Simulated assay, not measured.
Amino acid sequence: MARDEIYREGIYRNEDRPAAPFEFSEAVVKVFPDMIERSVPGYRELLEHTGLLVGRAVRPGTRIYDLGCSLGAATLAARRAVHVEDVQIVAVDRSPDMVTRCREVIAADNSRVPVEVVEGDVCDLPIENASMVLVYYTLQFLPLAERDALVQRIHDALVPGGVLVLAEKLAFEPPERQAWLDTHHHDFKRSQGYSDLEIARKRQALDNVLVPETRQQHHARLEAAGFTTVVDWFQCFNFAAIAAVRGDD
């Protein structure tokens, strides 16, 4: 696994040099598995538990979608948890470099469940006949004006009892709570070998690119879309996962 050193001191010796806005470039793709494990507390545990949710929610003759699939880690977690017949997984990402590498990762996996890796915008992708939709750290990168429509389309594409699993970095109120969580998140990143300069540069690069929302905002959107059961089922510092179930109509 290539080590994430994109924001290391050797590149940014001049601390006044601004960091460019974050993007899923070829350089990021090369180090992405290391970057996300060392940046997102609880990431590995989230993937391990994803299979439990998929195993119960997936139905024969339906699809699983991984929207914003990056290199396919959640896709593989879902794929290995499918034990019913006639299930297809559709994984989509808009980064050409991510899609190219994701296809290689999926091809190297020996599961029998077919996976289609699509290059495209999740806001334009047709979604239909889904029993499970995974949106892991993707909504936070979309313009705020596009988020309601995507969640509504996901709800409408799910079969009765189908599940959306949404993983996001959350914002918190009041400011003191946000500061406490930010402090401990940065401590986590230091424990993973990132320097203070790397942490500061990455945060600057993500400013106005990753726009988190509060748990209450996510709940309100999910309920407005028609989800009948919304459950906060996982959190590690300021990263959390929410499961939303479509009712039986």
Score class of each variant (00 low, 15 high):
Lys169Ser: 08
Thr75Asp: 03
Ala73Met: 06
Arg221Phe: 02
Val84Ser: 11
His83Asn: 12
Thr214Asp: 06
Phe239Asn: 00
His49Gly: 12
Val28Phe: 14
Thr62Ile: 02
Ala130Glu: 11
Arg38Tyr: 01
Glu48Asn: 08
Arg112Ala: 15
Asn129Ile: 03
Val133Ile: 12
Val211Ser: 00
Thr100Gly: 15
Ala225Pro: 07
Ala244Cys: 05
Asn129Pro: 04
Val118Ala: 06
Pro174Asn: 12
Val54Asp: 00
Gln204Met: 08
Glu119Cys: 11
Asn129Phe: 04
Asn129Cys: 04
Phe234Ala: 09
Gly72His: 07
Arg79Tyr: 03
Glu116Lys: 13
Arg177Cys: 10
Arg112His: 15
Gly51Lys: 01
Leu206Asn: 09
His186Phe: 04
Asn129Tyr: 04
Arg38Gln: 10
Val29Gln: 09
Cys102Asn: 08
Val209Ser: 11
Val159Trp: 14
Arg201Phe: 07
Ala157Thr: 07
Ile89Gln: 02
Leu46Ala: 12
Ala78Trp: 02
Arg215Leu: 13
Val58Glu: 04
Pro18Phe: 06
Pro212Gln: 06
Ile89Asp: 03
Pro175Gly: 00
Cys236Gly: 06
Ala179Gln: 11
Ile36Met: 01
Tyr7Ser: 09
Leu134Lys: 10
Pro143Leu: 09
Pro41Tyr: 02
Val245Ile: 14
Gly61Glu: 08
Pro41His: 03
Asp156Thr: 11
Asp248Ile: 13
Gly68Val: 03
Asn208Cys: 02
Gly161Phe: 11
Arg112Leu: 15
Arg17Lys: 09
Tyr12Asn: 07
Arg112Met: 14
Phe22Val: 03
Gln204Tyr: 02
Ile89Glu: 02
Leu222Gln: 01
His83Cys: 10
Tyr7Phe: 15
Pro21Leu: 11
Ala205Trp: 01
Val58Leu: 04
Gln88Leu: 11
Asp248Cys: 13
Asp196Gly: 02
Asp66Ile: 06
Met1Tyr: 06
Cys236Val: 14
Gln217Arg: 09
Ala19His: 00
Asp16Glu: 00
Arg103Glu: 12
Ala20Cys: 00
Phe237His: 07
Gly10Glu: 07
Phe141Trp: 05
Gly193Thr: 08
Met132Gln: 11
